[in-house]
Design a protein around this nucleic acid. Structure first.
Lengths: 213, 213
DNA sequence: CCATGTGAAGGTATTCACAGCC
DNA sequence: GGCTGTGAATACCTTCACATGG
């Protein structure tokens, strides 16, 4: 059935599938079955078929999915075909690492601006991006940049996000370990690294909870 | 009702609550209502009450939750009271940033070892941790280190995880952008940063999908 | 035979509404 | 009156089974 609303959980998996499709394409394949893709990305085959069924027919029974068509459609759905420029705010340890990371490119995402408050950093160029003073955040409005990555200390995060919002930013990936508020029209995804590590011990085998717990 | 199985989604939120509780405690509060905590961490009040109801009574009707008791219980559930030592594998840009990040400490987590293959890095000390050659991963077995953070290139990730598993590691936080396999007894959480950024554009307001889409 | 696409069933998590207690 | 704790209702997501078509 065509044009269901796509569930959030499916949206979360789409980039995973995209990676798998690109990997398969780079090996010269033109088609891939849900089973094969499932094995390569670690998701069940029926989950994949269900997910793809939310947006039309890209598979051929007996053969599998047309990799190129499907990849193109996923990019279109995620809007990776249109939106690509991102600004980085906070060029500390993490910010520098993100700036140096080549992995955004494969999704068509590009960090084209970087900001920091430290005068020692401002003016330097890292990975082809010149670091600007944070006071210049408002210039983003005129630069066709709609995404921002926030990698500043917790105390600065909210005010930076406020500035980004008034500079017309539409989406924020926040690495600061705190909740940040923004108008509903602006999507904020917070990625709290310490928190991910913090829930890891929960899943470890319990030493010896001997009955009656 | 006491001692339900705690849902995964609740476990994911527990570190969030812990942050909120610690923040409130540091402001001198001894009790906090679900509503107040909700506002500070960005979760609904009834969600919080439901989550806490999975593991006993820490609230007093009319007053709220005992912050210290509750924080202690959450730490116990997440096992942040017992397990704390982690090893870092891969001291590149991201690895260095993680090593420098003070945010793990608040959850009682400590990176006490670091490994890399680059001879230029091996032997150097960063943030009080001496970088060892990756060939020494097997020494983890005798060092009471049960968690590992993997920040190596994709191509190296699986073999590193294999080594970690045979070195007795019980939980892995993987930053490499790929699926890694491990025995079921070993918990792997993959945190794919580019993927998080890749799903952000989806949530941006559509430019002008004019009917008939 | 092969593999997709999908209604239906099953399971899990969120939201509600309110009883119970301070 | 205030706030927690929780069954019930709802919404959401996953899994299954199989009809459909190459």
């Amino acid at each position: 059935m065509r044009y269901h609303k796509i569930p959030d959980e499916t949206v979360r998996r789409l980039p995973v599938y995209l990676r798998g499709l690109m990997a398969s394409a780079s090996q010269g394949h033109r088609h891939i079955s849900s089973r094969t893709l499932a094995d390569s990305v670690g998701v069940n085959a029926w989950q994949i078929r269900k997910d793809f069924s939310y947006f039309g027919d890209f598979g051929t029974r007996g053969i599998g999915y047309d990799i190129e068509k499907l990849a193109k459609e996923i990019k279109k759905i995620l809007r990776l075909d249109v939106i690509c420029k991102a600004a980085l705010v906070g060029v500390g340890d993490l910010g520098s690492a993100l700036l140096a990371y080549p992995g955004f490119r494969v999704f068509g995402l590009d960090i084209v601006a970087a900001f920091d408050v430290d005068p020692k950093k401002v003016g330097r160029t890292m990975n082809g991006v010149k670091i600007e003073d944070s006071s210049r955040l408002n210039t983003l409005k005129d630069r066709d940049i709609t995404l921002a990555i926030v990698a500043v200390p917790r105390a600065a995060a909210q005010s930076i996000v406020d500035e980004l919002v008034s500079a017309g930013i539409k989406g924020v990936l926040n690495f600061a370990p705190c909740k940040v508020s923004a108008p509903k029209r602006v999507k904020v995804i917070t990625l709290d690294i310490a928190m991910e590590l913090a829930r890891l011990p929960y899943y470890l085998p319990r030493p010896s909870r001997v009955e009656g717990g």
